[in-house]
Design a protein around this nucleic acid. Structure first.
Lengths: 274, 274
DNA sequence: CTAATAGTGTCTGTGAGACAATATAGC
DNA sequence: GCTATATTGTCTCACAGACACTATTAG
């Protein structure tokens, strides 16, 4: 149950006087992913002030909980933070096609040196968006290639990586990447990284960027078309052939499936299962 | 980033004076599942006081955030609440074999009529445990058959259901059940519902209770044994045959796999995919 | 004895992946 | 022309599911 029933006087007070609670703040952080130049990128901001000044961090901020400002729901807070950082308009605008889902909540004591912070992380899949503007006091904001962050399987950054991540954001980002890799297996969300119309080779490039391995073009093509509802044909053909030649690929739109069946499983995962 | 950098004076104050924040509290709620008499059960408590007095709720309570009490991590809070409700000892005791994972965070404004509450929900898979004791001010506590709660696909309860769930706990429970159904497909966590040693028919009963459909005994048996690391033989044989006759099944332990490969997919899901 | 169950064998359809072939575009 | 690419075809192996069969136990 959400607040437990009163147990003694202090609990009674706590139920009705918020100030009697342990002090805690709630933030949202967003792992926003996109594909640029065939590589997976994440939106990061460089911190201007302490703590972790000069380090990079996921875009995020406090949830408007209802005191001085109108109470907002958690996904709304995530969209708001993303819109503020990217300079794009929210749900009704350019961010309308962005897929957003809750990733997880991070609340270990000490994860923020100032006070107890509970951070609800969201995961976003976006088509290619313009460069963000370093707004407010963020020293910088940019789409950063995920490969340049030196993430290890354990959620840390390799020593020597130039762009260091603040707080536990390396862990959050690692969790987001693993979630994204899995999501591509059994949902059609790879299309959220593409424009409204896309070719099968473009879709394959999304899979290759997120999974970090090349896929067999022929088998991928047949597989995508064989899964009901994954993509639907527009009937049109791209106006250009492949990058280094080849016939003009056909154009497709996202289909109406919410799950891929059968799934599109990552190759060669037998080893990493124990 | 977790607290965003200071942007103006109020933000500056907010960064260092917790009392300047919007008042918000963080709780954990636990969807604890087990199998009893071949049916899936969830641990619920009946509320003694307002709001929602007399209704049933998931066990849960406030996270000790570090004010008056020592700061605790979110999973520790979930284990503590589970231990308090079940009367069993925590990580080192009877709850040691319980699987616990984060389910999601629920923070819509108004979900608790008293104040803004952010609730981090956890999902637990437990072997059969004793009946809980209605401790503290909970009017009652019990393992309740999930089927008796009249949950609909949309996360509500059917009208006429006698046991009503408080807050948004019907939604949280529905999400937990759907997560559990999926987890059994691609992880060996069905073994978390069994004792240390179990038979393949017992394991099949877990799948049937969670998925709500009968499975083909022969194919299930061969499938479980063919997935590397799912189960390992103890060499022993159960001392009794099947409920209504039959040979004595062999005993197995949980294996070392963390993922099932190939997965054990639910039959007949082609329809519910759009 | 009878019925139900554990465990194994066999067959078939589907699908993943390797490999190949053909046509088309960039250079 | 040369090469890379899009798309389709073919083959093989793994596996899910249907069905069948035997041995064993409860009642």
């Amino acid at each position: 149950m959400s607040p437990e029933p009163m147990r003694d006087e202090s609990e009674f007070l706590a139920s009705y006087d918020p100030r009697a609670y342990d002090p805690v703040a709630v933030t949202v952080d967003v792992v926003a992913l996109t594909i640029r130049d065939g590589a997976l990128h994440v939106l990061l901001v460089r911190r201007g002030g302490a703590p972790f000044a000069g380090m990079w961090a996921l875009p995020g901020g406090f949830v408007h909980a209802g005191g001085r400002r109108e109470a907002e729901d958690l996904p709304d807070a995530a969209v708001r933070e993303l819109a503020e950082e990217t300079g794009l308009s929210g749900k009704d605008g350019a961010l309308g096609r962005v897929h957003l889902e809750q990733l997880g909540t991070y609340g270990a004591p000490g994860r923020d040196p100032r006070m107890r912070i509970i951070s609800v992380a969201y995961l976003a899949f976006a088509p290619e968006l313009p460069d963000p503007e370093a707004g407010g006091d963020a020293a910088d904001a940019a789409w950063v290639p995920v490969g340049a962050l030196g993430l290890t399987e354990s959620g840390d950054q390799r020593p020597g990586t130039t762009r260091r991540l603040a707080f536990d954001h390396a862990r959050i980002l690692s969790d987001g990447l693993e979630r994204a890799r899995g999501k591509l297996e059994y949902t059609p969300l790879a299309t959220a990284f593409c424009g409204d119309e896309f070719t099968i080779p473009e879709l394959r490039a999304v899979y290759e960027a997120v999974w970090g391995e090349e896929l067999h073009a022929g088998n991928f093509h047949r597989k995508v078309l064989s899964v009901p509802g994954f993509v639907e044909s527009t009937g049109a053909t791209s106006d250009r052939g492949g990058r280094r030649g080849g016939p003009r690929p056909r154009l497709y739109r996202a289909g109406d499936a919410r799950l891929l069946h059968p799934a599109l499983l990552r190759p060669g995962r037998e080893e990493e299962i124990r």
